[in-house]
């Protein structure tokens, strides 16, 4: 009885393993194929796998790329937009989250509900009025227009509020008795304690902004204002027959996000779990 059960378990485990690994290989394959394709000489028919995965390999495409598309300019736009969005969201959402969590004031409950309801609004449903607002403000085709709508996203505020809720009120009260102002208590007591939540918000905001498509696609009408996700398809459309060049552009555009993923995986995972609890 005991031995058959153990045998059962091991057969089951091996099967589970095999499925899990097969799926993992399938999941990884397109990315590996993309990377290898970018390393092949221009014109290689990369759909023939024996040719993709055997030498010669070269970095030529990476040097050719800037001559064929303003890829550095798009990268600069992407970095600038994602950087400013992340910094702004971190500062504003920790300030707002702190007030909602630790300061008793009239209307705080209603305000919290209103901000949380903002999560339900798909940006897709408000792009027209948003676009007209940007025109009214004379901001079309500027970096500012690519940045400011992201400042309105409620997710960061909600994550920060939830995190500050877990900090005991006594800590804040003790600081107040010592004569610390709200601002100082936030800055020197609560902010350092919330590093992990800030990391989660920062990383999620950065990757979302880096990969954002619809809004920059609408707001950046001049190719000099394109971010990488908007510029890439334009570039790919010009290269439908030749695969290695667009693959190189794709790898190039993915490097920052992949690096962030490799180094901050834990924070990303925690951030998603946190956002999910609220959502």
């Amino acid at each position: 009885m005991d031995t058959t059960q153990r045998k059962n378990i091991s057969v089951f485990r091996v099967l589970l393993y095999l499925i899990a690994i097969t799926v993992a290989l399938l999941w990884l394959f397109p990315i590996v194929w993309m990377i290898f394709s970018s390393l092949k000489p221009f014109g290689t028919p990369v759909a023939f796998l024996d040719r993709v995965f055997s030498p010669p390999f070269t970095l030529d495409n990476y040097f050719l790329l800037p001559q064929r598309a303003p890829i550095w300019r798009w990268t600069f736009n992407s970095v600038l937009v994602a950087g400013v969005v992340t910094a702004g969201v971190l500062v504003m959402s920790s300030l707002a989250g702190y007030a909602l969590s630790k300061i008793k004031f009239k209307g705080s409950k209603i305000l919290f509900v209103v901000i949380a309801a903002g999560l339900m609004v798909p940006i897709e449903a408000i792009v027209i009025p948003l676009f007209l607002t940007i025109i009214d403000l004379n901001l079309l085709n500027t970096h500012v227009s690519l940045i400011v709508p992201s400042f309105a996203a409620p997710l960061g505020v909600l994550i920060m509020k939830q995190y500050y809720d877990s900090i005991p009120n006594e800590l804040v009260e003790a600081a107040a008795i010592d004569g610390s102002s709200y601002f100082r208590t936030w800055f020197s007591v609560c902010l350092p304690l919330s590093r992990s939540a800030l990391a989660a918000v920062g990383i999620i905001t950065f990757t979302n902004s880096w990969n954002n498509f619809l809004w920059p696609f609408l707001a950046a009408q001049n190719s000099r204002m394109f971010t990488l996700p908007v510029g890439l398809p334009v570039f790919q459309d010009l290269h439908v027959e030749e695969f290695t060049m667009p693959m190189t552009a794709s790898v190039f555009a993915s490097i920052p996000a992949l690096l962030v993923f490799i180094f901050f995986q834990k924070q990303i995972v925690r951030g998603i779990a946190m956002s999910g609890i609220k959502g």
């Binding site: 799926v23 908007v230 996000a257 995986q265």
Partner: peptide, 11 residues
């Protein structure tokens, strides 16, 4: 399993 999620739509 998670890796593709960090790639952008265009990629």
């Amino acid at each position: 399993y998670f890796a593709p999620y960090v790639l952008s739509m265009a990629v």
